[in-house]
Design a binder for these strands. Structure first.
Lengths: 151, 151
DNA sequence: AGAAATTAGTTGACTAATCAATTAATCTGG
DNA sequence: CCAGATTAATTGATTAGTCAACTAATTTCT
């Protein structure tokens, strides 16, 4: 395997180094490396969704979601409310404390985006986004199909 | 944050789903999710490097490298030899057992590459590679500079 | 309606990865 | 030359994430 040839290596490195950046930036809020993406989803793309849906969207095990949401709840950023239509479900909502930091918190990820795409033209940024989501969907479909086939 | 807009989310998803694919593929060799990238480096890009260099290239903590190499050693895929020129260093080499599976093992990552870039033109594949490594280097330089500045 | 299957969430056990502290070897400056 | 600083590897403690087992609620099927 030649160096700087493998796509997965570039993705892995970018993930790890970005996570170091994120971890450093969010530490002042008391949010950890295992919670930020749940919090992002709830604070910036809408709350009131179930843990199951969170797990699916974040592509993590529901056990981890349960513990991450519990941690965010203990830290006062989210609360859970039983779904009146389905007693198994707990819908997760952001608190006032969370809403109060929304803009500055959002800034962390806008800044990360800018760092990642430094020196990119707007066209390159858009192209990168499209290529990344195509890869995301390709592997997603492949893995889901493999599971389905083995049943 | 709008859905399918964030680069880091696409990277995170692709990483997680790819890792699920890799974990499944390597399980028959007894190699775990925390060892494959070290083994890739040693088997496919050359062995005889120190754990310190491995840590740096893999962008992980040296503590994790120590344990991952130990596991690979216990499973018979690598061995360590003290560096004659520097008593602190241990150089890591792949075993015969590792070399014997090189081609079929390499195949896993070639296949992953194909899955990720399904439907891509050769030009798009090359473009993706370049854009990814530019992002990788951008965030890498940023984080390294931030550490240096804070000293 | 009621048994069987599925779904949502939780907990325990384990692997993955980081951070901090320690040890031993090497390097550097006076 | 040798004292102090740096480097490589290890270990312990902690957080992140997965997998399996379990409980409770819901859905499905007859």
């Amino acid at each position: 395997m030649e160096k700087r040839k493998s796509l997965i290596k570039a993705i892995l490195d970018t993930y790890r180094i970005s996570l170091a950046y994120i971890g450093e930036s969010i530490s002042k809020y008391g949010i950890g490396r295992g919670q930020w993406y749940f919090f992002n989803r709830l604070l910036l793309s809408g709350d009131g969704i179930s843990q199951e849906q969170l797990s699916e969207e974040m592509v993590v095990d529901s056990a981890h979601t349960a513990r991450a949401v519990k941690k965010l709840e203990e830290d006062g950023y989210v609360f859970r409310k039983a779904d009146p239509g389905d007693g198994r479900r707990k819908k997760v909502y952001v608190t006032e404390k969370a809403v109060a930091i929304r803009e500055e918190y959002h800034q962390i990820y806008k800044e990360l985006n800018n760092i990642l795409t430094a020196g990119f033209t707007p066209e390159e940024v858009e192209l990168t986004r499209q290529l990344l989501y195509r890869m995301r969907d390709n592997i997603d479909i492949y893995v889901k199909t493999r599971i389905k086939d083995s049943q």
